[in-house]
């Protein structure tokens, strides 16, 4: 093959690679998110299973220690993604309201039910003196909570790249609703 032809091919490719690599490198890596893995109960623990189609909406609430008088900084209701709204309530709780669109797009099958990862991120490096907040996840159907899961605390500040799991169980007397059947 002709020497100049080789150069005319190799040099632009090399330049393009270097430019791409440099440009991407200049952006820096975004801080890795902490993941809250929400697993819908599948009935193996004795409760009733919750299927994805039964859930219209999901709320994730981070609850600071009330006894220590702590609260999240103020945050007006803000759409942070398609069908996802974040706010801090009057009680100082951080709330994520996650709609069905987001749920359907991100949920994955887990056994006979489903699971969904919620990425959380924040600059909590100065929060080293606070008490670890609790977390509560609710599945909502037709405006009514049909399943709930709670953890007493999350490691705080949220460790980047960390994963915590929370299982959401069907509420008492909501067996049919959790199966996408209404009485």
């Amino acid at each position: 093959m002709r020497k100049t032809s080789i150069m005319k091919t190799v040099v632009p490719l090399l330049c393009a690679f270097l430019v791409s690599a440099s440009a991407l490198g200049c952006g820096g890596d975004p801080l890795e998110a902490y993941t809250l893995r929400i697993i819908a109960e599948d009935g193996s623990m004795g409760g009733d299973p919750v299927i994805q189609n039964a859930v219209d909406e999901m709320t994730v609430v981070l609850i600071p220690s009330a006894t220590a008088g702590q609260r999240f900084g103020p945050l007006e209701p803000t759409a942070v993604d398609e069908g996802v709204e974040a706010r801090v309530s009057a009680a100082g709780e951080f709330q994520l309201r996650i709609g069905k669109v987001y749920l359907d797009r991100n949920a994955e099958p887990s056994g006979t039910t489903f699971q969904i990862d919620i990425p959380l991120q924040g600059d909590q490096m100065d929060d080293t003196g606070v008490t670890d907040p609790a977390v509560r996840v609710s599945f909502i159907r037709r405006g009514e909570e049909i399943a709930r899961g709670e953890r007493p605390f999350l490691l705080w500040p949220l460790p980047p790249g960390g994963i915590d799991t929370i299982r959401v169980r069907c509420n008492m007397d909501m067996r049919l609703q959790c199966q996408n059947n209404d009485p």
């Binding site: 981070l62 999240f72 959380l120 924040g122």
Partner: peptide
């Protein structure tokens, strides 16, 4: 090559913006 490389980089970077790294949680006061 610079043009293509820059386009690729911008495209990748822009594409990455659609992929949220996480929902921002405010600090606890």
């Amino acid at each position: 090559a610079v043009l293509v490389g820059a386009s690729v980089a911008v495209g990748v970077a822009a594409g990455g913006a659609d992929d949220p790294q996480g929902f921002n949680v405010p600090p606890i006061l």
